[in-house]
Amino acid sequence: MPHKTFFWFILPSVVAMILFIALPIASVVIQSVYVEHERVLVEVENCGPFGCSTEVRVDTEATEQLRSEQPLGRFNGLGTYLNRAHLAVEEVGTIVSTSASIGEALTRIYNLPFYKAFLFTLIYCFVVTPLGIMLGFTIALAVNTIPRLLKGPVIFFSLLPMIITPLIGSLILYWMFSSNGILGATLQTLFNDPTLTLRQSPALTWITLLVYGVWTAAPFSFVVFYAGLQTVPGDTLESAMIDGASRWERVRFVIIPHLAPLATFVGLVQLMDNFRVFEPIVGFSSEASATSLSWLVFNDLVGQDSQAFGSAAATSVITILGVVILLTPVLIRTWRDFNAKGA
């Protein structure tokens, strides 16, 4: 296709992506090195009947004016990145030097908001992804053997947890897991512990969040693997049978190798998606026990009195870096595929 034709075809789409994806990323990077203006303070001399006193007051007008003149705020360099709400370099330094044991140091670091969110994000990513893939694979194997007539309805119900709006899905599970909901109440009876509630037990919150993650992630793996199973070469499978492979050996030596490339793909996609985990934190109102990087950004943006753009931007930049690191293997793979195709 000539360059000119290509240009006109791709133009609208590229303009949209540059304006609303590339520029915002640039905007985030810029915002992250600025911080909100401090309020303008003035010294006012108050002279009353009992003499004069000076008083420091907020000059609302001047503050407003300053804010509207320079909406970005003032330049702060990497200050926002290093402060307590983000990488907390100073605090971590103090913790490392004053803690008696590594365990204590880690616990104290974990209590810093950024590290708390970061840890949960990572754990969510690396627990939900493999579990989702394994569950999806098992379902695919099982569904593949049931009578054809039942497959349609089973796939229908299996798709639901995946296509459900994440916020709505997490609300549905949250209501069931809340102490008066069916699952929450059952758990209390089961463990005979009336204080076992989402609000009071961080462990339970973590587990329900992970359960939610696997619940929504498994159908995707299931669908992909199920489609992959339809393309397993029948000849290979039959020759494995003739060679004397048992049912399990056939799965192990024919089916799994056949599906391995798909599994890599699913794994990488889900890893990236899970790294963005956000809605469940809102849905489960779990911010007291578990937060994620995306949620930190959200929290800064909906801040009660003023929106902390600088802080949100700094967290965003760190999150983007994380995504890019997770993305590298995908990029390398695509690059290799492309070169192989070209040659």
Binding site: M17, I25, Q31, L293, F298, D300, Q307, V324, L331, W335
Partner: peptide
């Protein structure tokens, strides 16, 4: 052409961006 491939790669990177981080770029 090669640039088509680079656009696809850029799209792949863009697709992975958490939406909320983009939102934080829009607001101001």
């Amino acid at each position: 052409h090669k640039y088509a491939f680079w656009i696809l790669i850029a799209a792949l990177v863009f697709r992975a961006m958490p939406h909320i981080t983009l939102v934080s770029g829009y607001l101001l």
